[in-house]
């Protein structure tokens, strides 16, 4: 009986052979576009792996860079690596509390309506501003007298405005829209009866936010944060304008630790740029190696995000069951 039944059915796999020509061309285009994207992504990773691994040596990670045309003496990228880690950490530390606060205000308060719309637009504008514009803006701001403590004074007494502090503050703006967006989505996914259940136990709004809502959106905050870290680690413009993009980290002042934060430096992005044929071209081999390390960092962060998102999804699915 089953054989006679399946014989009567049309094939489960739909064939495009009967389609009009234009539809078939469109279909072919979709296939080509998808495959091309894969090929490009694979080509980037493969090329950078080939070029990078060829020149990547363990000593590159521990030697400080030197400005010389002699490749054997130009050192490694210890300082830029530390710069990337330091700048990403500082930028994220500033961005998380600010972004979570903005997201909570928007979702849980958001009154008056006009102000909420204005805050939303502001976050969108920040998200849409090119980082070079943020950098120039930051430079103007941080060269003001009041912000002198964030950097140092150049010869002649004017505020220099370029330091890890000032660069990190502007970098936090790069991460902010991503963390705000992820946190808001997380908060909006919590059903209102969960909040009401907390209020019905005699809890204030603030207690509810602290003990119920924030723990629920922790995976979302994590996702936004890691995305933001990727953006900070990959940004060049702010490093060039606000950090000095120097090869070595140069501290200013006498207080250990603080001198570095008030001083100049570079990151893997600026190191790659400066050493590549596009910059001064002093050490293209090392630029490839640094670029490969940078690529690995951002791919790693992205993989981490998708894992976080998956665990967050299963957690919120359990919460809304």
């Amino acid at each position: 009986m089953s054989a006679s039944l399946t014989g009567g059915r049309t094939s489960a796999v739909e064939s495009s052979r009967t389609w009009p020509l234009i539809d078939r061309i469109m279909l072919a285009f979709c296939w080509i576009a998808g495959i091309t994207a894969c090929v490009i992504a694979f080509a980037i990773v493969a090329f950078m792996a080939y070029k990078g691994l060829e020149f990547l040596r363990p000593n590159l990670f521990v030697e400080r860079p030197n400005a010389t045309f002699d490749q054997s003496k130009s050192g490694g990228f210890l300082d830029p690596l530390i710069g990337t880690i330091l700048l990403t950490t500082m930028g994220t530390l500033v961005a998380i509390p600010a972004s979570v606060a903005v997201a909570i205000w928007l979702t849980e308060y958001g009154r008056p309506f006009g102000l909420a719309r204005a805050v939303e637009s502001a976050v969108e504008i920040i998200a849409g501003t090119p980082s070079i514009v943020l950098a120039i803006f930051g430079l103007i701001i941080f060269q003001q007298e009041v912000f002198g403590f964030l950097s140092f004074r150049a010869e002649g007494g004017s505020v220099f405005g370029r330091s890890f502090f000032t660069a990190a503050l502007m970098m936090s703006l790069i991460a902010l829209p991503l963390i705000v967006g992820a946190t808001r989505e997380g908060l909006q996914a919590i059903p209102s009866h969960v909040r009401e259940a907390s209020y019905a136990l005699g809890k204030s709004k603030w207690a509810t936010i602290q003990r119920v809502l924030l723990p629920s959106v922790r995976p979302a905050i994590g996702t936004g944060t890691v995305l933001g870290m990727g953006r900070i680690a990959g940004d060049t413009a702010i490093v060039v304008v606000l950090l000095g993009a120097s090869l070595q980290i140069q501290g200013y002042g006498d207080i250990p630790g603080l001198d570095i934060l008030r001083g100049n430096g570079g990151t893997l992005t600026s190191y790659t740029y400066v050493n590549s044929p596009a910059g001064e071209g002093a050490a293209p081999d090392k630029a490839y190696a640094a670029a490969f390390v940078l690529l690995m960092i951002s791919i790693g962060l992205n993989l981490f995000v998708s894992r976080l998102a998956r665990s967050g999804k299963s957690a919120s699915a359990a919460a809304t069951r």
């Binding site: 005699g202 809890k203 204030s204 119920v212 809304t320």
Partner: peptide, 28 residues
Amino acid sequence: TQLRRRVSMVFQQPNPFPMSIFDNVAYA
């Protein structure tokens, strides 16, 4: 908040908070 401690409510959807069984009750 005093009133709601005296007049408590259970909802249509079960909605435990994202914490341990103990902490859900202790929170109240």
